[in-house]
Structures are given as C-alpha cells and as structure tokens.
Design a protein around this nucleic acid. Structure first.
Lengths: 210, 210
DNA sequence: AGGTTTTCGTACCTCTAGTTACATTAATCA
DNA sequence: TGATTAATGTAACTAGAGGTACGAAAACCT
C-alpha cells in the first residue's frame, strides 16, 4: 500500500525534493552542517523557503533527510566492504583504499559528513541526532560482526570485540578528519596501515591490566 | 620592560579579565565553543558587553585568549608527560591514565576543548585558528620528539616518526571524543591500550606496501 | 465557467548573535 | 575646585537565522 499515488488534483508540484536533498548534502558535506543555512540552500536550488519547510518540516527534518541519503551514499559502501566475506587483511586493505580515495578527482568533498555531524551534535535537532545514533549503532554493529567473523577464522588479534569496534571507529574518524584538514591521502593511508594493521592476526604482548 | 605599570589616573578597572577567561573557558569546554555567546558570558560574569569587547576586541579575541589559557591548563600537562624522560611503556601508561582520569570528581568537563575547537574551526575567527594551528604543531612536535627519543632507546615500533605522531594525535582525539560522548573511562582506557600498545617495541608484520 | 484542491512564493515576523555610540562615573593632578 | 584621564554600562544597531501568514497560481472536476 501507500504506493506513490499520483493524484492529478491541485497545482502540480514543482519542488524537486531529491535536488534539494542533494544540494543540501553537498553543501553540508563541503562546508559543514552548521554553517549552511536554509536560505543558502533555497538560493542554490531556486526553491522558496516555505517550499522547503513544507517538504521537510524544519531545519532538523532537512538535516535528518540529508543524513539518511548520506548513509546510503557514503556509509553503506563501507559497510559493504565489511560484509563481503574476505580475509581480514584483504578487508583492511579495502577499507584503507576506500577511505583514502582521491576525492578531488571524483568531485566528492573531503572528510565525512557523518563524522562532522557527530562533532556538531550539540547544534543539531532531535531527529538528526536520532538518525546519528542509529547510524553509529549500525556502524559499530557492523564492525563487531566483522570482528567476530574474523576471530572465528583465527585471523584477528586478541582484543575484545567491542573494544576493537570502537578502535576502528576512532581510526575511521581520525582518517576522515585528517583528510578534511588537507592531509595527503598517502599519509592518511600510512597511519591507517599502522593502526589497522594491529588487528590482523598476531598475539601482541599483553597490555597492562591496570 | 612593560612591567604591569599601575597608573593611578582614571577610573579604576573593575573588569576581572581572568575571571572572564575562566568562565568562558569552562563554558566553551562544557557546552562547546560555538554554542556559548558573548552575552551568556556577560550574564555569568556580571560584566557588560562593551567591557568584554574593550578587553578582547571581539569574539575571536576572547576565544583565542581562552585557548591560550586552555593550553597552559590542560595541554601542557600532557606535554610534560611526554617530556619527562621515562621508558616508553611507562610514558604510554601515564598518557592513558591522564586521558582517562575521572573528570566528574575533579569538576572538569568531559572531552578536550582543543579537540572540539579543531572540529569547529570553520566557525572560528582567524586569531583562534592561528592559535589552534600553533597548538597543534606544538603537540605534534612534542609527539615526534618523544618518538625519536623512544626510538633511540630501541623501545619504539618500526613506524615513521611523523606517522607515529599523527597516529598518537588521532588516538588522543578519539579518546577525548569518546569521553565527551559519555563512554566509560575504563572502555576508553582499553581502546587506548590496544592502540598505543602497538607503539612500544615489537617488530610487527610489515604492512602491505601497496 | 465556477468551485475544489493542492502547491506556490512574496513578504513578513521573531529572536539572537555580534558589535558599537555615547553619556556617565571615578579616580588623579594642578 | 575643576580639568584630565580612563574606565564604566545602558541602549541601541545590523545582519542573518529559523519560521510562517496568506493570497495567488495551476491543475482537476462537474
């Protein structure tokens, strides 16, 4: 049910929801989610403010929609890498390659909108924050599932699963932030190799129990 | 020269610069540097807005002053740990202990103002950004110096110095962000042990050259 | 054609941020 | 006492943000 019914009554809609989301997405991603105003987006899309408010309710609604789209667009590929059943080291390398792609030649902004939004959560509305939490849980769960599969193959270091997931999350965030601040992708890749390299296999000297 | 001359001429100053900086510091630290307004700080310190502007020039000036104070207060101790000549593992443990102190019982906000400011750099003025860069270079240099000393003692893993410094920076930022988001200090410490543990000694299996 | 329905966009509102003009106050000096 | 100096704080201003009231427009149905 709830098929996109096409009621022919009334003035036809001209507002292009997807376009607004796309433009907002690129703006938030390239300039920061708290720096771009609704008016900016209206100007860039040629829509009116009431149009945007009719479609998304409010600022929070727009940002939440954008985040949803961003998840499909930029986070899912990362998840896909983790869910493909490959050896641990191959997956790690794929992750690194994915994170350190050359963004300029793909016309994609540097950094990660999800990571940026997390850092600006204080200035975001409740729906956006919910979606943020959701996305985070989703990612952490994916990390954990991957770690557990890796462990079952005996290919993973002796680190508690939840800790490992948080560790990966930190490296991802760090890489995205470095990229955003202009670091060379080679440099970022080196750091990631040093960091994620630990996860594969080897027993490490036990860390202090403290 | 330029001793704090105490000219008795004119109306005596009542504005307490240090108090304003302290209050602003705590506000920025606990609520985020871009969420607290000048008016808020005026309200909390009982000073007038023109008073603040006379003293700091503008928002940017106040934030820059706060960051300077924050550096002395919260970053220097971390630097001190690194500059104390101790074995690599002892230093690492000291770093972890320092980062995962219980903040609530010390009446110190969670997280790190410096890390937060970096994430909000787009919304900060030029002086603040300069001080931010400066502080970052200072930290990275300290990391590098420590790494080199560790290496010369043969106590450090086979990782390029600059990469190691960036790696440490990421772990620090990650830990501070986790703390801010409410993670338990024990959890954070576990992640840090897994992460920083790599730095000490052992030859690791060479990461892919790619 | 005239009513109905749905969307449109101009022009506004409110609120808060950063910032400043200016008259006032409180001290010293002559 | 009155001039000088240096600080004070009230009360504004400007700009831009999020958000909305409301009449016009564009389709349909009868």
């Amino acid at each position: 049910m709830n098929e996109k019914t096409t009621p022919k009554r009334g003035r036809p809609k001209t507002l292009d929801r997807d376009q607004v989301v796309q433009v907002a997405l690129m703006q938030y991603w390239s300039k920061g989610p708290t720096v771009v105003s609704i008016s900016d987006i209206c100007g860039l899309t040629g829509t009116s403010k009431p149009g945007v408010y009719r479609e998304f309710g409010n600022d929070d609604g727009l940002k939440a929609s954008v985040l949803e789209t961003y998840h499909r667009l930029a986070i899912q590929p990362l998840i896909d890498i983790l869910e493909k059943d490959q050896s641990t080291t191959v997956t790690i390398n794929a992750l690194i390659d994915f994170m350190t792609q050359d963004r300029t030649e793909l016309n994609i902004p540097q950094g990660c909108l999800f990571v940026m939004m997390r850092a600006h959560a204080q200035q975001l509305g409740p729906s956006t924050c919910n979606k943020l939490q959701e996305a985070r849980r989703n990612l952490l769960d994916t990390y954990e599932a991957w770690v557990m599969r890796s462990k079952s193959r005996g290919e993973f270091a002796d680190i508690p699963t939840d800790i490992a997931a948080l560790f990966i999350d930190i490296q991802h965030g760090g890489a995205m932030r470095m990229q955003r601040e202009g670091a060379a992708n080679d440099t970022i890749a080196s750091v990631l190799r040093s960091a994620l390299g630990v996860l594969a296999m080897g027993k490490r000297a036990g860390a202090r129990t403290n």
